[in-house]
Deep mutational scan, measured.
Amino acid sequence: MAAGGDHGSPDSYRSPLASRYASPEMCFVFSDRYKFRTWRQLWLWLAEAEQTLGLPITDEQIQEMKSNLENIDFKMAAEEEKRLRHDVMAHVHTFGHCCPKAAGIIHLGATSCYVGDNTDLIILRNALDLLLPKLARVISRLADFAKERASLPTLGFTHFQPAQLTTVGKRCCLWIQDLCMDLQNLKRVRDDLRFRGVKGTTGTQASFLQLFEGDDHKVEQLDKMVTEKAGFKRAFIITGQTYTRKVDIEVLSVLASLGASVHKICTDIRLLANLKEMEEPFEKQQIGSSAMPYKRNPMRSERCCSLARHLMTLVMDPLQTASVQWFERTLDDSANRRICLAEAFLTADTILNTLQNISEGLVVYPKVIERRIRQELPFMATENIIMAMVKAGGSRQDCHEKIRVLSQQAASVVKQEGGDNDLIERIQVDAYFSPIHSQLDHLLDPSSFTGRASQQVQRFLEEEVYPLLKPYESVMKVKAELCL
């Protein structure tokens, strides 16, 4: 049975990233139509530049190519590739079939990587351009969430054990800070992308030097003109047959890092959902379990974690691919890159769409948070109580021993009897502590235990987050809708 299948058929496997999760716009960027249309555009740009620099290419040939950029006979191309065992030459023939007058000058002087690699770089750039505003929107939604809850005390956790208090907004800023680093890295790697350009079979530009009869300047002009037509500021000066596969490492490393950030955020949300302090959106008709109707599973956060793990592992592909590119190139890269580049971007696209949807509907339960604080705060307040007693004339050592005994009794009630923490009640009825009984409410005010959390939130948002989001103001209103 021949390899390949009808990918629109229910009898043929289709990647869930495309069929179930990723956005239509990201799927289109990695589609065959987008790819092969870009090949034709690159052939047109090459012909236009070659004509401008004096090669015998007519206006009629150029116009014929322009008129057929979208006229792609995919069936013919597939048949040609089956016959020739070469995808680029299959599309040269297919393009030439609908451009008979231009057929002889299509791909003039070029090698397969002229269309293959340059198209990949265009796709990487455009895919990054799709991700950047999506990530900015996630940051914006979380920034709104953090600002609104900047002063809401909550129990902090280290080692997932109760620690000092923080605020809900401050905790959210930990998430935002990681995503801001990801946004900066995505922008950097996007701006650092260079075009492969017009380089020939081993990167020496020998074929173009021959076409222009040894004119170095025209060869350099050709490279520059096509690079500018493709919208790049610069091209690699040095290439082998391909652009260095280190570029793929750079791009997928940034995406993998984004995956790590999203995994951490969504894990926190899942843990908070278990504590009943916070939940992701839950639709009115949504079913959490087929057997347990009360369940409210954090399905979206779980999906993000599941896909983020996949995204983090994909960076190993370009690392290994770059390491086995012998001399000017081997074909070890080809099949692998067809999979890992598309999957990385479709996965990143999915987790950003999902995280935006989550961040637009996060639900906080202040009463649950308050109750958990009441359970733990008495123990945390013991040092403040000791200091207040010393100020009232008591002995630190005597007070410490009193607190120690009462704390152990209260802990026994919590752990052995399943009761509430009654340390404060014990202190309130103990005559030894009568000098500070009137101060206990103040000493137990949760806001006095959150330090500068709310001020940190305000400063972080104003100095770091809002300036970073400013270039994306025009796209901030787009909502994230999930079908599944």
Rank of each mutant, 00 (worst) to 15 (best):
G104P: 12
V189K: 11
V115T: 12
A335C: 13
Y365C: 12
K477G: 11
S15T: 15
A235F: 14
G361Y: 14
Q458K: 14
H86M: 01
Y114V: 04
D192S: 11
A322M: 12
L258V: 10
I238G: 06
R270V: 04
T119I: 07
P100E: 10
F157V: 03
G419L: 14
H86R: 00
T382V: 08
E60M: 11
L183P: 04
I436H: 03
A480D: 12
I105Y: 08
P10S: 15
F212G: 05
Q458F: 15
V254M: 07
L179A: 12
Y365D: 02
T94W: 06
R188Y: 06
P435T: 06
Y294N: 03
R303N: 04
L444K: 04
L482A: 13
R459D: 09
H442P: 07
A143K: 03
K218G: 10
D332H: 01
I62R: 05
S323A: 09
A22Q: 10
R33V: 14
Q439P: 04
M476I: 14
G361N: 15
F160A: 05
N297L: 03
P133G: 14
L314M: 13
E383Y: 04
I403S: 05
K295I: 01
E343G: 12
R137I: 13
F282L: 11
A453G: 11
V324S: 09
T450Q: 05
V168G: 02
N71A: 10
R85T: 05
H86C: 00
E360F: 05
F208K: 04
Q63G: 09
F236P: 00
P471D: 13
K233G: 12
H86Y: 00
D223T: 07
L272C: 07
E383N: 03
A381S: 06
D248E: 10
G240K: 02
T154S: 10
A127F: 04
L142P: 00
L355H: 04
E277W: 04
K224W: 09
T350R: 05
L155V: 02
A47Q: 04
E80V: 08
C98R: 10
H159Y: 01
A136G: 14
I436F: 03
Q320A: 09
A308Q: 03
M65W: 01
D430M: 08
Q184Y: 08
P435M: 06
G4N: 15
E473L: 13
F212S: 05
Y13A: 13
M26I: 07
M312Q: 08
D441L: 11
K284H: 09
D248N: 04
A344Y: 03
C172V: 11
I72E: 11
V262P: 01
N421E: 06
S434R: 11
E462K: 13
F282S: 11
T94I: 14
I265C: 13
T313Y: 07
L53S: 09
E283K: 15
I339A: 08
V364R: 04
P378Q: 03
E464I: 15
K246H: 06
F157T: 03
A49K: 00
A235C: 14
Q320V: 06
R459A: 12
T354Q: 13
L132M: 11
M312G: 03
H310W: 06
R245I: 00
A136I: 15
G197T: 01
C172M: 06
G169H: 02
R329N: 02
A410Q: 01
V251A: 15
R270N: 02
F157H: 11
G4D: 14
G214L: 10
K66W: 11
T244Y: 00
G214A: 13
V478W: 15
A260K: 03
K246N: 03
L69E: 07
S31Y: 01
D144P: 12
M312N: 01
I424G: 12
T347P: 10
L124G: 06
E417T: 07
Q325Y: 02
E48P: 00
G4W: 14
R196N: 06
E417W: 10
L341V: 12
T382N: 05
P318K: 01
K82A: 10
L423I: 08
V219H: 05
S438H: 13
L311K: 02
I123S: 12
L271I: 14
D191T: 12
T354C: 13
S67Y: 13
Q41G: 12
A22W: 07
R404Q: 09
V115D: 03
E279L: 05
W175I: 04
I249Q: 05
S261C: 07
D87M: 00
D430T: 11
Q428K: 12
E401S: 11
E48T: 06
H400A: 04
K101E: 14
P100N: 08
N185Y: 10
F433C: 06
L252T: 13
V168R: 02
R270H: 01
L46Y: 05
G96V: 13
E417I: 06
P133A: 14
D117W: 00
R303M: 04
A342N: 08
V364K: 01
D332G: 01
M312L: 10
L346F: 12
A102H: 01
G259F: 00
L255R: 02
E370K: 07
A49L: 01
M389K: 06
R309I: 04
I358R: 00
L155I: 05
V405I: 15
E50R: 00
P100F: 07
S412V: 15
M292Y: 00
L53K: 00
